[in-house]
Design a protein around this nucleic acid. Structure first.
Lengths: 206, 206, 206, 206
DNA sequence: GGCTAAGCGAGACGGTACGTCTAGTCTTGGG
DNA sequence: CCCAAGACTAGACGTACCGTCTCGCTTAGCC
């Protein structure tokens, strides 16, 4: 049996403009950096984009969703693991890149998203799915490679290694208990090397 | 000894009732647990306590301050390091207590505070001063004791040790990337022992 | 065979369906009776008719015009002066018919049109041209006939007579200062007869 | 038995400022004259008065109520029957005053109120209670006096006389079927005198 | 024990953003 | 060019809180 009502809802009516979507997201992001996440209003976004409020509410259910989307779809795909000859070095470089990003305006952005996520499950879920987990996956791959390359002990729980490396950075970002310096990142890295590394791990670059 | 100073600006007029203060804090806490932190309004607190809004704003500068105060003055003094013969064991016990607390409704409270703190520096500062730092201080003392007792290497940066132990727990609390189980706490503890412990460290209790 | 005439401004393309026009007007009228005149939305009319909003706006310049058209093209041709042997009696009968109409759902429709007309000159103009004036013309003819027949003094300003007879009915329709009863209509008629009639005017029928 | 709970709601809290009320009504009226009744927005009233929207909505349930109140409480008490030696002359003078008012900006105002009243029962009711009926009452008193003074037949239904005199004026105001001139008012007056007057009625002033 | 400054409950106040709703226009794809 | 569908700009609606500001009252503590 085939579909007898094959296209009752075949794309009808004027399609939503993807261009407008991009404009809105850009404006939202600009404003988020400019006036902060909380002081952001849908009304301002609409006005500055030159768009009706309806157009925004047609695409996102509420303010949080807009900004979340703005952040993740634009600055999201930035952090990547640089490729080096030895995976273990890639980790070190990536950590350095991450703390640098956290010190920039993106750090504030992330704090906002995490902050909002504590109240809005949808925001948190989006943040986890589109920011946290992809990065963990990259880290996992790299770490497993380092294990294969013999630079990390292979009897470790990878998740715990990731947590140990990265959680302290988020901790400092959110609690401001100390600087998110390159040195700090390096310290965390060295700790892990010392604790989990094999004797033959390469000299870390400073 | 009596007051010898005339006190030109000695408290005149009717003094603020401390009883009312307590009532307000209790109501605020109840409501925080009931409807969540964000949906909390000063108007509701006032109404439910049977108090004028003025009475609240006379004592706290804004909503955040009230709730922060409510949380910290009531649930604040809960987590302590249990005393054991060896400090290293005390750490393990405390971690178990902490994850237990995080799994309870207090975990949600903390998430709320952290969340709000990302937007309101006063809230974050209060949270850091009255929750984070006191606990870190206790941890520091215990860890230093463990070093003296020869169960932890003494060439370590204590702050990094603390971060390594506790940051992952906050990380899971806020990002929900995995359960905050006793096993998880234990895993973190074991990692540190393995990495930073001396050869003679005692068998950890399960 | 090909088009030999260029037809620069001859009707080109698909002609507008008159059937659709009727459907729209019917729906508009139904809705006007159902939910009232003000709560009527173009979107609802379009949806209920199964028609695009464009199709409506292509035919009428705005909402008021649609509804006005709906009302007048359907209920318009209802009230007529019945023909009797003496014109003066025709007036009395017509007044009775009019108050009866005003007490029905058409009274509500008229109120709506008049109400809207106070804000929209186009609506008022349409209402005047297509409802008020035709009826006044009929009344004028009948009254002049009654004058010729010697039942009304012929030195009167016909417009004033019409106003005196009919204005009070609209007044009660709009201000609800009293019932628009047959008795009321009769009273108005009798007043005019008494004031403007000649001694020989016939006994009025009750 | 006396009230046992005499003052549970004795004036508590800050009382509403009557000054503000007046400011709002004045602004509303100004705007109504300036941009028209329909284009009037609560937001504009609030802004121009320098008042929060809440303050307006605390006192009136919706836009219509505000403007209605503005009109009636400010321009409402204007039209009065001038006192003359003979009541019949007072009527003539009042009619002249009324058509003059109807030709002014107040005429537009009244049209707006009547227009809105056709859709909003509350508006209509307020208009009837505070504008129509008081004026009818004054007219009734004057007419009854004229009857006693022997200038009008005393076997007439006063309501019908009032309707006959005034309804045509409202009719022309709303349907624009002719000018609301002094001459028109005089014509209506003369008709009534001719039809309902006694032989001894005084010469009407032109 | 009366005086008086401050506390107190109630609720009005100016602001600001929310998310919803229409009006009337524009843009698709398909006759 | 018509049509149905539905996205688009524009902007008012009425609601909800915020933090401040009166009201009329109560209540300590100094004279």
């Amino acid at each position: 049996m085939t579909k007898s009502v094959p296209e009752s809802n075949a794309r009808r009516g004027r399609p939503r403009s993807d261009h407008i979507r991009q404009l809105i997201l850009n404006t939202a992001l600009d404003l988020a950096f400019e006036v902060g996440f909380r002081s952001l209003t849908v009304e301002t976004i609409a006005a500055k984009t030159g768009v009706g409020k309806t157009t925004i509410y047609r695409r996102w259910p509420n303010k949080g969703a807009v900004v979340m989307d703005a952040f993740l779809s634009i600055v999201g795909p930035k952090t990547i693991f640089p490729s080096t000859d030895r995976a273990i070095n890639s980790i070190q470089l990536q950590m350095k890149a991450q703390v640098k990003a956290f010190r920039s305006k993106y750090g504030k952005m992330i704090r906002s998203l995490v902050g909002d996520g504590q109240f809005d499950p949808d925001v948190l879920d989006a943040f986890r799915q589109r920011w946290i987990l992809p990065r963990r996956q990259l880290a996992r791959t790299t770490i497993e490679l380092a294990m294969k390359q013999g630079d990390l002990r292979s009897d470790l729980d990878v998740d715990t290694v990731i947590d140990t490396l990265y959680a302290p950075i988020y901790y400092r970002l959110m609690f401001e208990t100390g600087p998110i310096s390159d040195a700090y990142a390096n310290g965390l890295y060295q700790s892990v090397i010392k604790g989990y590394g094999t004797s033959k791990h390469p000299k870390s670059k400073r």
